[in-house]
Amino acid sequence: MHLTLLFFGLSCAWGLRLLAMRTEGTRQERWRRSLGLFLFPPLLLLMTAVALVCMGPQGQMVRWWEGWFSYFLAVGFLASAGVMLFKLMMEGRRSLHQVRTYPQIVLKGQPSRLLATPIPFIAQVGFWQSELVLSQGLIDTFSADHLDAVLTHEQAHAYYRDTFWFFWLGWLRRLSAWLPQTEALWQELLLLRERRADRWAAQTVDTLLLAEALVQMVKAPELYAETICAAFSSATPRNRLEERIDALLSSQESLQPSNPWVWAWMLLVCLPLMTVPFHY
Rank of each mutant, 00 (worst) to 15 (best):
Q58W: 15
M47H: 07
R27Y: 01
G59L: 13
V62C: 10
L46C: 13
P57E: 12
R30G: 00
G56I: 07
C12G: 05
E24I: 02
Q58S: 15
G15V: 08
T26I: 00
L35K: 02
F8W: 12
F40P: 13
M61L: 15
L10Q: 07
W65C: 06
W64N: 12
L52Y: 10
L37R: 04
G25I: 00
Q28L: 01
T26P: 00
W64I: 12
M61N: 14
G36T: 05
C12I: 10
P57L: 07
V62D: 13
M55T: 09
S11T: 15
R33C: 01
M47C: 15
Q58N: 13
R63G: 10
M21D: 10
T4I: 15
A20K: 14
G59T: 11
M47K: 03
P42E: 06
T4A: 15
R17G: 07
L44N: 03
W14E: 02
L37W: 09
L46T: 13
R32F: 08
L46D: 02
L5P: 08
P41L: 10
E24Y: 02
M55G: 14
F8I: 09
R33T: 02
F40V: 04
V53R: 09
A20P: 12
G9L: 06
S11H: 05
S11G: 09
E24S: 06
V50P: 11
W14L: 11
M47W: 08
T26E: 00
W14M: 08
E29G: 03
R27S: 03
L35M: 07
T23S: 11
L18H: 11
T23N: 08
G59H: 07
A20D: 10
L18T: 09
A49L: 13
R27M: 04
Q58H: 15
L39D: 05
Q28M: 03
L18Q: 15
L44H: 02
F8G: 06
L37N: 05
G25H: 00
P41R: 10
C12A: 14
R22D: 02
R33L: 00
G15E: 05
A49G: 11
L19K: 08
Q28N: 03
L10W: 14
A13L: 06
Q58D: 14
E66M: 15
P41W: 09
L52W: 12
G56W: 08
P57S: 10
F38A: 01
L45F: 11
W31E: 01
R32N: 06
S11V: 13
V50T: 08
C12N: 04
T23P: 01
W31C: 01
L46G: 03
T26S: 00
M21S: 11
L44A: 06
W14S: 09
R30T: 02
L35A: 06
L10F: 12
L19A: 11
L39C: 04
G36Q: 04
C12H: 04
L46K: 09
L39E: 05
L45Y: 08
L35R: 03
E24W: 05
P42G: 05
L52A: 12
S34P: 11
R32Q: 05
S11M: 12
R30C: 07
A51Y: 04
G25F: 00
M55S: 11
T48K: 01
L19G: 03
M21V: 13
S11N: 09
L35V: 05
